[in-house]
């Protein structure tokens, strides 16, 4: 596959269906707005944000980053595998990516659990409004991404994709990478930098 592309003119459209890319761009716009709103609200409440950020579990955030990156890697490997007609391997890589999503949600479950049992909620203060809105909204995207991957995995397992036809898998893969990409920005922004 690699050799085929080398030296050729760039492809006109990104991998996967163009319709998913319209959706991805809309989602990126929404996350951009959320990040910008966070950054500029922080500006007006510096002390609150800096202080509250310390209450977050950055280790949980880091583990989750590792999980999402691994999931993204798994999906990329799955696409590479199907292009080489290794359908079984491709299905297994997808399963690994779904597993990383499950791991992400388990970590989130404990992270939220600790916060909620400490009495923190959406309207505790401005920082937590953002923290919960942003991470919860993102976590829902992880869930949606997992649902999409489950469909793709199921179809792969049944031999629905091949080196010739993997349009649907690339569609799902692109969405999953978007979820990862957003977290790559979210993690340092909310958990680390101050």
């Amino acid at each position: 596959m690699n050799a085929q592309h080398r030296g050729h003119a760039p492809r006109p459209y990104p991998p996967g269906d163009l319709a998913i890319w319209v959706f991805i761009l809309a989602e990126l716009a929404a996350f951009f707005a959320l990040f910008a709103a966070y950054a500029f609200t922080r500006l007006r409440h510096l002390e609150l944000f800096n202080e509250m950020q310390k209450t977050l579990d950055s280790t949980a955030g880091m583990i989750n980053t590792l999980l999402l990156i691994s999931g993204s890697w798994g999906v990329a490997r799955a696409v590479a595998a199907v292009k080489a007609n290794h359908v079984r391997a491709s299905a297994n890589w997808l399963l690994m990516a779904i597993g990383s999503g499950v791991g992400f949600l388990i970590v989130k479950y404990f992270e939220y659990g600790a916060k909620f049992s400490a009495g923190v909620g959406l309207d505790t203060n401005l920082f937590y409004t953002f923290y919960i809105s942003l991470t919860m909204f993102h976590a829902l995207h992880v869930v949606l991404g997992m649902v999409i991957l489950l469909f793709v995995w199921n179809k792969t397992r049944r031999g629905g994709y091949s080196a010739h036809d993997h349009h649907g898998m690339e569609t799902g893969a692109s969405y999953w990478h978007m979820v990862d990409l957003v977290w790559i920005v979210l993690f340092p922004l909310v958990y680390v930098m101050r």
Binding site: H5, H8, P10, R11, P12, Y13, P14, P15, W21, L25, L28, F31, F32, F35, A36, A39, S72, W73, V75, A76, V79, E170, A173, S174, H177, M178, D180, L181, V185, L189, M193
Partner: peptide, 28 residues
């Protein structure tokens, strides 16, 4: 570039997504 696979896609699409990343980080 490599997970999403936009490296081989024409500049417009790559530019939009990379642009999103850079603008977002710049705003932050």
């Amino acid at each position: 570039q490599d997970f999403m696979g936009l490296r081989r896609v024409r500049l417009l699409w790559r530019g939009i997504v990379v642009g999103w990343l850079l603008v977002t980080l710049a705003v932050i």
